[in-house]
Design a protein around this nucleic acid. Structure first.
Lengths: 154, 154
DNA sequence: GTAGGTGCAAACCTTTTGCAGCATG
DNA sequence: CATGCTGCAAAAGGTTTGCACCTAC
């Protein structure tokens, strides 16, 4: 899907929910969808400020909350207390492996995993809203003794 | 396993690692293992202060870090930015479902889930250190319209 | 015109840290 | 008796909030 399309979908959805479509939201959404990487709130703020230096931190946080609530963006914990976001539109659901040495994030997907989670939930009458599977450890490169990042545990 | 046994195991292990066994650590470990619930650092501090009002917050955090590092305790994110711990000794690994309405935490285990994670990791040469699967949603009771907790999203 | 959104700065909360004194091994 | 641990208080991060002004609808 093209960025402009994604942008349009988000705009439509938010308008339908009664939200206003402001310049700031447009900018923040554009930056959040610009690449399929995993960004922190602060990084997103920086990107936005390159185009409009007066965007406020509060607006970025508030918009991220709206986007997360609407399901366009997903938060994931990085294992060292941090939190990153990724946009979801046009990308199938996937899980993550986080390298504790270099911080790299690998995505993977396994249908059987999903199925078994549904099953487990059904057993106790739990209605799934979302879920998060993260595997922490060392990626192939870091097992070979690459330099660990500052503060890494491994 | 009995609490005294668990206590003894932790003490032995920490001593062997060269850590000192202080009154504070003994107390903190005792409180952490007192029940198999999911507690925050602050709650653990409170419990400890009931028996010894001068235990410091810093010591609780430092001890939790040691225990987590040693694998006696595991942290888990609650989905609303919070963090809780549970003790692990004598309890098989399990995953969690977190009710976003009432905060209840349900444990479950599925060997096939574990197996498929190992497989996915093997495929990309990733060495697993730990992993965390959490399913967020509504528990059976809350689907029937029980009063949601303050600040709940659902 | 009027909600709702924004920017700013201050408040908040949880966790970490520097340091002087204390207690364990 | 040396080092590691503790308590305190302050700092540090990351996120939220109160409020006056602004702007999309």
């Amino acid at each position: 899907m093209k960025p402009e399309q994604e942008q349009a979908i988000v705009e439509k959805h938010l308008r339908e929910q009664g939200f206003r479509w402001t310049n700031q939201r447009s900018l923040i959404v554009r930056m959040a969808f610009a690449t399929h990487d995993h960004f922190t709130a602060e990084e997103l703020l920086d990107r936005c400020r390159k185009l409009d230096p007066k965007v406020s931190r509060a607006t970025v946080y508030r918009t991220l909350a709206v986007l997360e609530e609407a399901g366009f963006v997903e938060g994931l914990e990085t294992g060292d207390g941090g939190r990153r976001f990724e946009h979801v539109l046009g990308h199938e659901h996937h899980d993550h492996m986080v390298c504790l040495a270099c911080g790299a994030i690998f995505e993977f997907r396994d249908d059987e995993l999903e199925r078994r989670q549904d099953l487990a939930a059904k057993r106790i009458g739990f209605r799934i809203e979302r879920h998060s599977l993260r595997i922490y450890g060392a990626c192939r490169d870091c097992q070979r003794g690459a330099a660990p990042r500052k503060g890494a545990r491994a």
